[in-house]
């Protein structure tokens, strides 16, 4: 499926998607509340069939956080990027680790480094940092005078 077809297909599934220009692959912004439904459609609809979540991350835009999901289909070989803006004070989004299992670890990583709370995640604990770590290191306003070296 070409990028244009993908865009039209997805906007029919989820009318309030906001396509973003630029980038190599189609970019969409989705409301956090609509994400689980869209994810189901992306994964299980035969002509979409995005079965491979190859990158899951988060970007701190200072005003808000943005979840970024890079999806690919091993059958149709098309790629897509889904983004979702989250409230910086109380970031919450539904987990997708029941759809793409690789998300389990990636979401745990995002959880501890950005503080995004993944609803219904089966095992949302700290993965990399010690359990008593305070703060979210990859946020832009994170300061740690002891461990951070500023050049």
């Amino acid at each position: 499926m070409t990028n244009e077809e993908l865009i039209t297909e997805l906007t029919t599934i989820q009318p309030n998607l906001v396509p973003e220009a630029g980038g190599e692959w189609p970019n969409f912004f989705v409301e956090a509340a609509d994400w689980p439904k869209l994810a189901q459609a992306l994964r299980f609809k035969d002509d979409l069939f995005f079965d491979y979540l190859f990158c899951l991350t988060c970007v701190d835009w200072k005003t808000h956080l943005a979840m970024v999901y890079h999806l690919s289909s091993t059958r149709h070989r098309h790629n897509i990027v889904i983004k979702s803006k989250l409230n910086r004070e109380k970031p919450e989004i539904q987990t997708v680790c029941d759809i793409w299992r690789t998300a389990e670890f990636h979401e745990r990583e995002v959880y501890e480094l950005f503080g995004v709370n993944f609803l219904n995640h089966p095992d949302l604990r700290k993965l990399i940092l010690p359990d008593d770590w305070v703060g979210y290191p990859l946020r832009k306003d994170y300061e740690d005078p002891i461990n951070m070296i500023k050049l």
Partner: peptide
């Protein structure tokens, strides 16, 4: 195969 894709194994 399905698990490999789902787990993102490459």
């Amino acid at each position: 195969k399905e698990d490999a894709i789902s787990y993102g194994v490459t």
